[in-house]
Amino acid sequence: MTVPLLELSGVGKQFGGLSALSEVSLHIKRGEIYGLIGPNGAGKTTLFNVITGLYQLNAGEFNFNGRSYQTPKPHFLAQAGIARTFQNIRLFANLTALENVMIGRHVRTKAGVFGALLRNKSTRNEERASTERARELLRYVGIVKAHQTLAKNLSYGEQRRLEIARALATDPLLLALDEPAAGMNATETESLKVLLQDIRSTGITVMLIEHDVKLIMGLCDRVAVLDYGRKIAEGVPDEVRQNPAVIAAYLGVDDAA
């Protein structure tokens, strides 16, 4: 079997005395859709922030695409190929949709101050390519009509899609989505599912946190369940659903039993 794209072993994260993650080990294979579920406060977003460099891990090992990272900065991981969206949308609110996606191209382009001042041929070409790619991505997620609209004036669903387009603009190997379907209705969730499947078919590995169990079950190849900062189960969705530890975590367990 080939080396997994992402591999965590024994990862721990403490905030003062509080242990948000402990001994979490998991691996994500190339090309799969990997779901991360768990009750509120289980540490899903913390794990996400560790994987995308917003938090530095206190213990354990973090390997991505064959390289080991100890205390990586977020921009470094974006460069390495991890792109993310946020649970509470964090777009560049006062910039247009197109500009938002073009900022995603930053990490794959090079023009510096001198390029900007001289606006030489390579800078102009790069700029044109960025604009084109950004437009293409907006079309891909289905909001190209709104390319001149300020991000903050887009509808909620469009903002979610714009965040995905912006993340895709960084040419990621792993796309990490933090509750992409939160607040969406059934139709929107369904079209999100189609979009994510399509993204996977282009070879991008997808990892997502989600509360919508139906979406997770219908979409993910494998699922991990976190509870109190520990991984309590992992496997194909149907297996996980039958797992007594998972049922206990979600429904509680009768102490007397």
Binding site: G53, L54, F92, A93, H106, V107, R166
Partner: peptide, 24 residues
Amino acid sequence: SRIGRAWMAIREDEIAASSMGINT
């Protein structure tokens, strides 16, 4: 320019900017 857009990204949301690969 690419630099100007990156500055504006930092102005709008520094965390999102660094997650998009901008060396803030």
